[in-house]
Design a protein around this nucleic acid. Structure first.
Length: 256
DNA sequence: AACGCTATCAACCGCTTTAGC
DNA sequence: AGCTAAAGCGGTTGATAGCGT
């Protein structure tokens, strides 16, 4: 399923990532952040190009990345968002916490494109049937109450219904609530799907509750280096936003 | 069992955008 | 304003799992 590992003429490794490489990258980024993707592999002791590291982190290793089966609600939302944004996968991914643009893009091409086509075809034939029926009996009233029917009738209902799956922040991993959801809301400020952000208003207005489960992540991960010496230390001023949080938590943990 | 075909998805590539000077 | 480097993004590729014949 993955490309065979290989090394190019510059000594840069390509192809599938080994567990060891994953652990190195994860440990490094969690400790120092991604202050410069191009330089990062050198400091982290990886024979990879920065692009490859970034991609691996963003799509696979980043805390909060959700993998696996898509729910019907997610698929409906993707289809709806695709109608709105087209192939702007990063914009679509911003509305689905924990899902990456690459993952959504793959899922679209392998599942939803077909499903969407079929839906459109069936809707078209349904519309033709409806037109026929209207000709025969314009007085007949229609009644439909299923969620699917509601979605077809009201695109906004679709988005709102789908969002129910995401308003339960607790269903996400602790990491995603602090990282991805913040991005999600922040990116959305000018979106025309404003309703999608509403459930997160409380995120901003309520007092910040420190989620100490971060520190569990750090202490549990056996691949996080126990000493600074295991990695080349970059420039502290480059430390990434979210990583400051890790340091903060680590320090607090140390204080306790 | 063996083969071919299809589906899947991680990873790559190249173009565009953004930031810094 | 123009240049350069870095980051981001979307399209595409390729290995392999799984299914049908």
């Amino acid at each position: 399923m993955v490309r065979a590992p290989s090394v190019d003429k510059n000594g840069v490794k390509k192809g599938a990532w080994s567990e060891e490489e994953d652990n190195k990258l994860r440990a490094y980024v969690l400790r120092y952040g991604h202050w410069n993707w191009r330089q990062l592999p050198k400091f982290a002791g990886l024979s990879r190009c920065g692009k490859s590291c970034r991609l691996r982190w963003m799509n696979y290793l980043k805390p909060g990345v959700r993998r696996g089966k898509y729910t019907i609600e997610e698929e409906d939302l993707i289809i709806k968002l695709h109608e709105q944004y087209g192939n702007r996968w990063s914009a679509i991914a911003a509305k689905l916490p924990g899902r990456t643009d690459n993952d959504i893009k793959n899922h679209w091409h392998t599942h939803l494109k077909k499903r969407n086509k079929q839906t459109q075809l069936s809707e078209r034939s349904q519309n033709m049937d409806d037109a026929d029926q209207n000709e025969q009996s314009s007085a007949m009233s229609t009644s439909g109450s299923s969620t699917d029917q509601k979605r077809e009738m009201d695109p906004n209902a679709s988005a709102a219904d789908s969002l129910d799956a995401y308003t339960d922040i607790s269903s996400l991993s602790c990491d995603s609530t602090l990282f991805d959801c913040v991005d999600w809301v922040a990116d959305d400020s000018n979106s025309s799907v404003e309703s999608l952000t509403e459930p997160f208003e409380s995120f901003w207005t309520e007092p910040f509750a420190l989620d100490t489960s971060f520190s569990n992540y750090i202490s549990v991960d056996p691949w996080l280096p126990s000493t600074e010496e295991e990695f080349l230390y970059p420039f502290s001023s480059f430390l990434d936003d979210g990583i400051d949080c890790f340091h903060e938590l680590n320090n607090r943990k140390g204080d306790d």
